[in-house]
C-alpha cells in the first residue's frame, strides 16, 4: 500500500534520513522503533507531506506521491496524527472532529460524528469544551478520532502514547487495534517498543536516520539486539 524507496530528508544542512526504505502492506499495523533523534518523526513528516524529501520516492497505492502537500495526501487517504497531538486548542471538541471531516463531501459526516461520540463517550460529554482544556489522554483520543473522521486508508500515528499514564496507554493501543480491525492500515511510531510490537504485524528499527533492522513483530520481539536496545531485559 505504502512503499518508500531510498528517501533522504534534511532540516537545512542537517541530514536526518539516510536512504530510508520501508513498506506497509494493506491491512497491517507496522511499527517504526527508534531512540530520540533517530528520524522517526521526520519519516512521518515525509510521508504525510509536511517535509519534502531531498531524494527518493514515496508511493501510495501504486501512485507516486512524493512531494505532495499534506492536504493533497489527505485527499488520497493518508492521515497523520502528529507528535504532541496538535489539538486545535481554541476550537471545541466538536469543531475539532468536524475539521477532521473537512475534505469530505459525502452525506455521512453527521452519522460518523455520532458514531465517534458513541465510541468515545468522553468526547460526547465534552463536545462543547475547548480542545485545549482536555487532559493529555483525552486529547490523544480526540486527535485519533479527528483523523478517523477523514476516513483514511492509511493512518500514521506519531508517538500516540507519549506522556500518557500507563492505563491510558493500554487504552490507546486497544483503540489502534480496533481501528486496524475495522479496515484501516496503520503505521505507528513508538518509543513504547514492547506494546507497539505486540499490536503490530511487522516493524522497522531506525538508528541515526538509517533502517538497521526489520522483520515480523514476533521476530523482533525475540531478537536479542532489539531486546537489548529497546525492550529491556524484562521478559513478559
Amino acid at each position: 500500500m505504502l512503499k518508500i524507496s531510498g528517501i533522504n530528508a534534511s532540516y537545512g544542512k542537517i541530514q536526518v534520513l539516510k536512504n530510508v526504505s520501508l513498506e506497509v502492506e494493506e491491512g497491517s499495523i507496522v511499527t517504526i522503533l527508534g531512540a530520540n533523534g533517530a528520524g522517526k518523526t521526520t519519516t512521518m513528516k515525509s510521508i504525510s507531506g509536511l517535509l519534502k524529501p531531498n531524494s527518493g520516492k514515496i508511493e501510495f497505492l501504486g501512485e507516486d506521491v512524493t512531494g505532495l502537500r499534506p492536504d493533497q495526501l489527505l485527499r488520497k487517504g493518508v492521515a497523520l496524527v502528529p507528535e504532541g497531538r496538535q489539538i486545535l486548542a481554541g476550537m471545541t471538541v466538536l469543531e475539532n472532529l468536524e475539521m477532521g471531516a473537512y475534505h469530505r463531501k459525502d452525506h455521512d459526516i453527521a452519522s460518523d460524528l455520532n458514531k465517534m461520540m458513541e465510541r468515545f463517550p468522553i468526547l460526547k460529554e465534552r463536545e462543547k469544551q475547548l480542545g485545549g482544556t482536555l487532559s493529555g489522554g483525552q486529547q490523544q483520543m480526540l486527535a485519533i478520532a479527528r483523523a478517523i473522521m477523514s476516513k483514511p486508508k492509511l493512518l500514521l500515528l506519531d508517538e500516540p502514547s507519549m506522556g500518557l499514564a500507563p492505563l491510558v496507554v493500554a487504552d490507546i493501543f486497544k483503540i489502534i487495534k480496533e481501528i486496524n480491525e475495522s479496515g484501516t492500515t496503520v503505521l505507528l511510531v513508538e518509543q513504547n517498543a514492547r506494546q507497539a510490537l505486540k499490536v503490530s504485524h511487522s516493524g522497522y528499527v531506525l538508528e541515526t536516520g538509517k533502517i538497521v533492522a526489520e522483520g515480523k513483530s514476533d521476530e523482533l520481539l525475540n531478537d536479542s539486539r532489539i531486546i537489548e536496545a529497546y525492550l529491556g531485559r524484562k521478559s513478559s
Binding site: 504525510s48 507531506g49 509536511l50 502537500r69 499534506p70 492536504d71 489527505l74 485527499r75 492521515a79 497523520l80 502528529p82 496538535q86 486545535l88 486548542a89 481554541g90 476550537m91 469543531e95 468536524e98 475539521m99 477532521g100 473537512y102 475534505h103 479527528r146 477523514s150
Partner: peptide, 19 residues
C-alpha cells in the same frame, strides 16, 4: 473554521486537508 484552524496551527490545518 478552516481559517480559524489555519490561524491556530498552520501545520495541523494542512494535515486536516485545508489548503
Amino acid at each position: 473554521k478552516a481559517l480559524r484552524a489555519t490561524a491556530e496551527n498552520l501545520e495541523t490545518a494542512s494535515l486536516l486537508g485545508v489548503d
